[in-house]
Amino acid sequence: MESKPPSEAASQQSSELREETRAAGATPRQAAPLKIDRRPTHGLWALTKRDLRKWYTNPYQLIISLIQPVIWMGLFGKALNFSSFITASAPPGVDTTGILTSFFGTASYFSYLVCGMLVFIVVFNSAFSGMSVVWDRRFGFMNKALSTPVSRGTIVMAKILQSVGRSLIQAFVVLLIGIALGMSTASLSVVGMVGTFFVIFLVAMGLSGLFVMLSLRSSNWQTQMAVINLLNLPLLFASNALFPVKIMPGWLQDVVKVNPISYCIDAIRQLLIGATGTYALWVDFSVALAFAAFFSVVGIVMSWRLLSK
């Protein structure tokens, strides 16, 4: 694009005018800034960093957020371990690995569960991305940011990005814990890891966009907490995070099939532990991409409009 949009040209011109007024004005103790950054993305990193530092300077928050997946993996995954259940109860000579693989796509139920937990921590974390929006609105920081020339889209984007950043790190920690607790590492590969974290990135983008948008509608944290609880567990249970779709009743299978989380988990299982997927990898990726694109765009556009009101 060669020609500048009129608004950009106008703002450049006006900042020049501003310099002149300053030079002429009788403000001896005030020196004008050299140049003002008027790119639409300015302030994005500053806002993202502000939220991220709240998280990494408070180790308790990180530890508490990890307790839940650790409990799921350590207690649920170990106590209700379908692998040992089937292996122990099957009569001799029965191909238990075949049975397990036909159900879970892998012989290790624990590995199966860890992949689900990787996505679950992202769901949980993204749901809370809205909370920081509620706090910022409550304590006036949102209005302060809105009174500066920072783009309204940047404010929303920063909230989404900080949540995505947290999700990626938390998912990585959960993966390490999973491996430490006995997840199968036989199929781990660089490509698989990159693919896994790309899927996690997509889930985080889509869900954060959704929850940031919802939080801009609700004015108090009680409502926000209710929304989080309303969406969190159903998203988990109505997905293939804990159990394979096959063993579910028909109506639930339909729900799981429209839950985009299921496709993301399915992709991660294929990439990380070499499980046999329910869907082809390209189907999983298409759904994940479409989901992320749809909700982040809708989230950003809606939030933008709400903030501009």
Partner: peptide, 26 residues
């Protein structure tokens, strides 16, 4: 604003710089 909007987890200096960043001041 009437509210105390400064970020409690940051220092006074960092808070001012954050505002500067929002205005796009280098």
């Amino acid at each position: 604003p009437q509210d105390y909007t400064a970020d409690e987890d940051m220092t006074g200096y960092e808070n001012i710089l954050l505002c500067g960043d929002l205005y796009g001041i280098p």
